[in-house]
Design a protein around this nucleic acid. Structure first.
Lengths: 147, 147
DNA sequence: CCAAACTGGTTTCATCTGTAACCATCGAAA
DNA sequence: TTTCGATGGTTACAGATGAAACCAGTTTGG
């Protein structure tokens, strides 16, 4: 434990990032191989599938994406005819986004795969470990939220 | 709990990624504001500061970076004269990388900042929460390692 | 009523990224 | 030896990214 040395392998920000990156990389194969989606596109699909209708801003908040990411993901899903935009009645800057039939089909196909992925990941852990990661993540989220 | 809906906010891969991204973004200000380093450059600096001497391949393994990232980060740190390359005696493909005086100075300046960042992050958690996140991350790392 | 500040969303630009192709060198096997 | 597959490292290319500028529409204050 040299005081003036940082052990990268034990440094929480690094470990957290590496872990998330590995998990996300694994998971991305599900939407990339199957439909050639990017992560922002997947999140957009997922957000709209879950909520039904959202504006781009809401989507960005819900799925923690920069607004340019949202804009591009929405444009691409629209190009695929997986979603449609409906102008807001009272505020003409706003568009309400919703999945089309085709988009919904893709969403419904992916939900079980996503759930299975998560389940299989957690299955490798003991009950205690599972509880630890879930509550630990929640605690850190809360800590960041709070300030 | 609709069975055919995925709740993004509770989906572990998403939460993990968002958390890591937020933490990493916060932390990046330390090396970005101060020295204009990118994450790969910071990891390279950190790896060499910690270990003293490494080859590019070793660096990539230690800090979980793609070899092109390593290559570019090393090139940039070399341009700054923060590290030097020494050709290996017996294998002329290999270069041993080490920090210069200037590189070491920058490293030594950042280590306390990094440690303080981690400490302040964990300070916001209770003992139980701290234990949970640390052991939870370790468990997931192990699970991914194992297969 | 009008200007200024603000907000939803897009685009531009410069940078970062990964894949794949590449070059040089090495080691093993014939 | 010579050849050929593997390995250390760089580069080219095509996409993905974020900051900042932008456009259109909206709200606020005078």
């Amino acid at each position: 434990m040299e005081p003036d040395i940082l052990e990268l392998e034990s440094f929480l920000p690094y470990r957290l990032y590496r872990l998330a990156d590995a998990v996300s990389r694994e998971f991305s194969r599900i939407y990339r191989d199957r439909h050639g989606l990017t992560r922002p596109e997947w999140r957009t699909l997922s957000g709209l599938g879950q909520r039904g209708t959202m504006t781009a801003t809401e989507l960005g908040e819900q799925s923690a994406m920069h607004k340019t990411k949202v804009s591009r993901a929405v444009a691409e899903l629209e190009r695929r005819r997986w979603l449609t935009r409906t102008p807001d009645e009272s505020d003409r800057r706003v568009e309400h986004l919703a999945l089309t039939k085709a988009g919904l089909t893709a969403y419904r196909e992916m939900v079980p795969l996503a759930k299975a992925f998560e389940r299989q990941l957690l299955e490798r852990l003991s009950h205690q470990e599972r509880a630890a990661i879930v509550s630990g993540v929640a605690a850190l989220e809360g800590a960041l939220e709070g300030k």
